[in-house]
Amino acid sequence: METANLFLLLWAALAFWVLGQIWLVQIVIYPLFAEVGAADYIRYHRSYTRRIPLPVILPGFASFLLPALLAVYGPAVPLWMSAANIMAGLAGLLVTVLLEIPRHARLEKGGRNDAIISELIRYNWPRTVSISLQAVVTFLMLRHVFGAA
């Protein structure tokens, strides 16, 4: 198998991992933040942030940044696919850095705050959509490279 095609397959595994993860975060994990009592909240959030780097943060940031490398080193696909993948990754990165990380920091310092938790859920929707778009584009890339059969 060509290296470019292998890169696409590895990218697909990452993209679909992050897809499942972002929907779990959006539908289950972030809403559960509001179920933790105020007295235990800071301890809970610190425990959460200690546990997520390997399964969540590293794959997430990789999914934001690797589309540019895939466009250069991956197999030939229509330009719009690469562009959409890169733009969706950048959108996810911007939402993460500008909206989500600051809210997590506020929750970790100040404890439970229902308004911030609501913002975390609401502002995560664009990231959820961008990662979902990456998964759709990745599926189309796989079809383009490996055929519809």
Rank of each mutant, 00 (worst) to 15 (best):
24 L>W: 14
39 A>H: 04
75 P>K: 01
140 L>G: 06
39 A>Y: 03
69 L>P: 02
73 Y>V: 07
80 W>R: 08
114 D>N: 15
109 K>I: 13
65 L>Q: 02
39 A>C: 08
122 R>T: 11
83 A>K: 10
38 A>E: 14
147 G>P: 00
5 N>H: 12
89 G>E: 06
37 G>Q: 05
1 M>E: 01
94 L>T: 11
13 A>Q: 00
81 M>N: 01
4 A>P: 04
131 I>S: 09
21 Q>F: 05
143 R>N: 13
80 W>E: 02
41 Y>K: 12
13 A>D: 03
85 N>P: 04
81 M>L: 02
20 G>W: 08
115 A>N: 06
87 M>F: 08
29 I>W: 04
62 A>I: 08
111 G>R: 02
131 I>V: 14
148 A>P: 02
135 A>W: 00
22 I>S: 03
27 I>K: 15
47 S>Y: 08
80 W>S: 15
145 V>T: 05
66 L>W: 11
74 G>I: 04
108 E>R: 15
114 D>C: 03
104 H>I: 12
53 P>W: 03
100 E>I: 14
73 Y>D: 05
59 P>C: 01
67 P>N: 12
143 R>W: 07
72 V>L: 11
33 F>W: 05
24 L>Q: 13
14 L>Y: 02
114 D>H: 12
31 P>F: 11
5 N>E: 06
24 L>S: 08
87 M>Y: 07
139 F>Y: 06
101 I>V: 02
34 A>L: 10
130 S>C: 14
74 G>L: 07
125 W>H: 10
81 M>T: 00
80 W>Y: 15
